[in-house]
Simulated assay, not measured.
Amino acid sequence: MSEPGVLVERRERVVVLQLNRPDQLNALSPELMDELLAALRTADADPTVGAVVIAGHERAFVAGADIKGMRDRPLHDVLTAPASRFWMRLAEIEVPMVAAVSGWAFGGGCELALACDLVVASEGASFSQAEIKVGILPGGGGTQRLARTVGKHRAMELVLTGCAVTAAEAQAMGFVNRVVGVDEWRDAAIDLATQIAAGPPLAVRLAKRAVLAAEDGPLGVGMLAERKLMELAFASEDRVEGMTAFIERRAPRWSGR
Rank of each mutant, 00 (worst) to 15 (best):
A45F: 03
D66N: 14
A51I: 08
A43Q: 08
L28T: 08
A38T: 15
L28M: 15
P4S: 08
L25G: 00
V16A: 04
D66V: 00
A45E: 12
V6H: 03
R21S: 11
L40F: 13
R21E: 13
V62R: 05
L7F: 07
P22D: 12
Q24G: 00
R41H: 08
S29G: 07
V15S: 02
Q24A: 13
L17W: 06
V14P: 00
V53D: 04
E31N: 03
L40Y: 12
R21Q: 14
V62F: 01
L28P: 11
R10K: 14
H57P: 00
P47D: 13
Q18A: 03
R21Y: 15
E3A: 08
T42P: 00
V6D: 08
V8F: 12
E3T: 07
N20D: 13
N20V: 02
G56I: 03
L25A: 13
A60V: 02
V15Q: 09
R11L: 02
D34H: 10
V6G: 05
T42H: 08
G64L: 03
H57K: 11
D23I: 01
Q18Y: 09
V15I: 12
P22Y: 14
V62K: 02
L17G: 02
D34Q: 14
D44H: 14
M33Y: 03
G50K: 13
L37T: 10
V49F: 10
Q18P: 00
S29E: 07
S29Q: 01
V14H: 05
R11G: 02
E31M: 05
A38W: 04
H57I: 01
T42L: 12
A55I: 06
R59V: 09
P30I: 11
G56S: 02
L19W: 02
E35P: 04
V14L: 09
R13E: 03
E12L: 11
E12T: 14
A65C: 07
G50R: 14
D23S: 10
R41M: 05
A27S: 08
A55H: 06
Q24E: 13
L32C: 07
T48N: 10
M33T: 04
L32E: 10
V15N: 00
V6K: 05
E12I: 07
H57S: 11
Q24F: 05
F61R: 03
A43D: 06
K68R: 15
K68N: 13
A45K: 04
V53Y: 02
V49I: 12
A51M: 07
V6Q: 09
I67H: 07
I67C: 01
A51D: 00
A39E: 12
R11T: 06
R10C: 02
P30F: 10
L36I: 05
V49W: 12
R11H: 15
I54A: 02
G5V: 01
S29M: 04
V16D: 02
L32V: 09
L19C: 04
V8T: 14
R11N: 13
E58T: 15
P22N: 11
D44F: 15
L25E: 07
L17D: 05
G69Q: 06
A65H: 07
I67E: 15
I67S: 09
V14Y: 04
V49Q: 09
E3M: 08
A65T: 09
G69D: 10
G69A: 12
Q18T: 11
K68H: 14
K68W: 15
E31A: 15
A38Y: 05
G56W: 07
A65E: 11
V62Q: 03
V52F: 11
R59W: 09
R41W: 01
A51Q: 01
